[in-house]
Write a protein that binds this DNA or RNA. Structure first.
Length: 614
RNA sequence: GGCCCCGUAGCUCAACUGGAUAGAGUACUUGACUACGAAUCAAGCGGUUGAAGGUUCGAAUCCUUCCGGAGUCACCA
């Protein structure tokens, strides 16, 4: 908004000419005037009081006088304590409405020519997506949309964890117990089908382990290794991984399978490809239902060996060092971190190696200026280390790496665990929430009149809006608790509430199909409801900018709610079609149409679609 | 134990990045559909911002200590 900068520079000029004092324009703090005071925008003058040895009231008054003489769009001012409040003219606000109304792409920043790669979703191919993935996907998607609106060229990507011991567990389980069943033969969605075998493996393994615990060998290990007061149960819980690696029959079979996979054993690779393709069919269905897509997919099976060459090169440049056993490390203690291994003693890669290599191949593929990783907060430390390593390797984009870290979604009973089957499934929750929308719409006329197909489309939009908004309105880094027994809200601070504001506008605007609302040039009496809306509307571009800078979709969700709320209020208090004058009517129609556009754009940034009726 | 994140109304969340009397939703109590759509609007109730110090014109926000909760500290991913 130009006027804010104009006020800021006018204050700077005022300080210079009245007090011979120099300030930077950026240091003039200007914000919306709080609603309990009179005015539109407020400048805080406290910071200059001390340097100028003046009192805040006098300072405010002299600066106010100066600004009002120099800026035509400022009508009046008042000073409360150290707060200098400016009121802008109605002509200014009408100009704003005209200006915003003329901008089809209002809110979008000019293209900056920079490429940013956003990684999100990143599932494992041994189990279906759950609510936690939904949070990840929504954050990644909306972050991509917001960065795009902020002028970046965005590459949406995910890395698919399609290999490793967990994947072998599902494969082995199917091989041993599957009797040749397929998703088709059992009429099951592919990812769920495979996930079922993963859970089955865990069950079989658990049974095997329980048997071993009471065996002679099990008891022997217990007596030998248990510490002091430790209970038998506690011991065996902690011993589980060692058992899997050292004693378990199933564990050994799974590990053998992983070795065969790594040795590119053909039957195993074929099994792997077949089962993964089932999973991808399932995933694609889920992605489609959520409403997301990707520009580029990376597979861990292609990338897990990457990065070794980089480590060798880094070794020569002494970024890394080799230990006597042959393993390669980096010492980050001077940056407040630990020493970290980047290559095992047998020369094979670890997770970190892979991520180094993946970052480089992405840069080679696209020439990125910036990368964003949407990954849960349990990996905060990993990314801190990764970014530091890339910096030391001198990667050109290393200063523009961001880990969009988010809190886990927990159930009232604690963490979701897919191995124990206590997860809220992504497909299930979407179906439920659409059903919830259906229940809520029984007694609402507009939906009943639609044909079946349109009805379902609208219910889908409403249900998904409720789910998505509920998740995305919360700041990413905060954890959240989701209670599957409580249905998702459709009233109050929700997606459908915002949609309803939009639908109300469409309902009015349908009477003006040609968008010919007439002229509001002569309109004199902009009221408080109209002004509040207009002020909020003009904030939108600024909001997109800061949301992109902070990687924070929740601020957009908040904005959507506020704007929707103001419109509902306006709609209730002010007559549109039966306005007092033709100018008033024209003004309100224009305003409504602009609000609708901003609501739609803003919700679109969150991946939420707007229905025309509901 | 080291590091990191979180703690705001009964519950779910805000607070324009240090600004004015900490705001919404929900729940509860009430009022508004013969005005463009009541998935809406309005009113009431609800707070020592986990605690104590400190920094300054001004602190939920910054610093210190403590309390409570989550995470992480693998030659796992």
């Amino acid at each position: 908004m130009k006027v804010l900068q104009e006020i800021q520079s006018s204050i700077v000029n005022g300080l210079a000419s009245i007090y011979d004092h120099s300030e930077n324009v950026e240091d003039i703090l200007i914000s919306q005037t709080r609603k309990e005071f009179q005015g539109d925008y407020t400048v805080v003058v406290f910071p200059f009081v001390k340097a100028l040895r003046s009192n805040p009231i006098e300072l405010g008054n002299r600066l106010g006088e100066y600004v009002i003489e120099n800026l035509a769009s400022v009508e009046s001012f008042n000073v409360v304590k150290g707060f200098l409040n400016f009121t802008l003219t109605h002509e200014y606000w009408k100009g704003q409405l005209t200006e915003v109304g003329g901008q089809e792409d209002f809110g979008a920043q000019p293209r900056n020519g920079k490429k940013v790669l956003v990684e999100f979703s990143s599932p494992n191919t041994n189990k279906p997506l759950h609510l936690g993935h939904i949070r990840n996907i929504l954050l990644g998607w909306s972050c991509s949309q917001i960065l795009d609106a902020a002028g970046y060229d965005v590459i949406k990507t995910q890395i698919i964890n399609d290999r490793g011991i967990a994947v072998c567990k599902s494969m082995l389980s199917w091989q041993k117990f599957g009797n040749g069943e397929t998703p088709e033969s059992t009429n099951t969605k592919g990812d769920h089908f495979v996930g079922r075998y993963y859970v089955l493996f865990e069950q079989k393994f658990k049974a095997e382990y329980a048997g071993w615990q009471t065996s002679e060998k099990g008891q022997e290990v217990l007596t030998e290794l248990r510490k002091g007061e430790q209970s038998e149960e506690d011991f065996f819980v902690k011993y589980k991984n060692t058992y899997f690696n050292d004693y378990s029959v199933l564990g050994n079979e799974a590990k053998d399978m992983l070795l065969s996979w790594e040795a590119k054993d053909e039957p195993i690779r074929n099994l792997w490809m077949m089962m993964n393709s089932w999973v991808y069919d399932g995933f694609n269905e889920t992605f489609k239902r959520i409403g997301v897509d990707f520009d580029k997919l990376y597979y861990e099976s292609d990338t897990y060996l990457l990065g070794k060459k980089t480590v060798e090169e880094g070794l020569k440049r002494e970024v890394f060092y080799r230990q006597e056993d042959g393993s390669v490390w980096i010492d980050l203690e001077d940056a407040g971190m630990d020493k970290k291994i980047v290559l095992r003693s047998d020369g094979t890669a670890v997770y970190m190696t892979q991520d180094i290599g993946t970052a480089m191949i992405r840069n080679a593929n696209f020439g990125v200026e910036k990368m964003v990783y949407v990954v849960g907060n349990e990996q905060d430390y990993h990314f801190k280390v990764l970014f530091e390593i890339l910096k030391r390797l001198g990667e050109p984009y290393a200063d523009e790496l961001h880990h969009l870290s988010y809190g886990m979604i927990e159930l009232p009973t604690g963490k979701m665990k897919s191995r124990e089957g206590t997860v809220v499934d992504a497909d299930d929750i979407m179906v439920e929430v659409i059903n919830e929308a259906r229940l809520g719409s029984i007694d609402r006329g507009e939906i009943a009149e639609m044909d079946k197909e349109e009805q379902e489309d609208v219910l889908r939009k409403i249900g998904l809006a409720a789910l998505k908004f509920m998740i995305i309105k919360i700041q990413p880094k905060k954890g959240m608790i989701f209670d599957p027994k409580e249905s998702v809200d459709m009233q109050g601070q929700t997606g459908p509430y915002v949609q309803y504001a939009y639908v109300r506008i469409q309902s009015v605007l349908r009477k003006y199909k040609d968008n010919n609302f007439g002229s509001f040039d002569g309109y004199k009496e902009i009221n408080e409801f109209e002004l509040a809306l207009l002020k909020e509307v003009v904030e939108f571009p600024n909001l997109v900018k800061t949301a992109a800078e902070n990687y924070d979709p929740s601020s957009i969700a908040n904005y959507c709610y506020n704007l929707g709320k103001m419109y509902h209020r306006f709609f209730h208090e002010v007559r549109i079609l039966t306005a007092e004058t033709e100018e008033a009517k024209a003004f309100r129609l224009h305003l409504s149409s602009v609000v609708a556009r901003v609501l739609e754009k803003a919700m679109n940034l969150l991946g939420i679609e707007m229905p025309e009726k509901m």
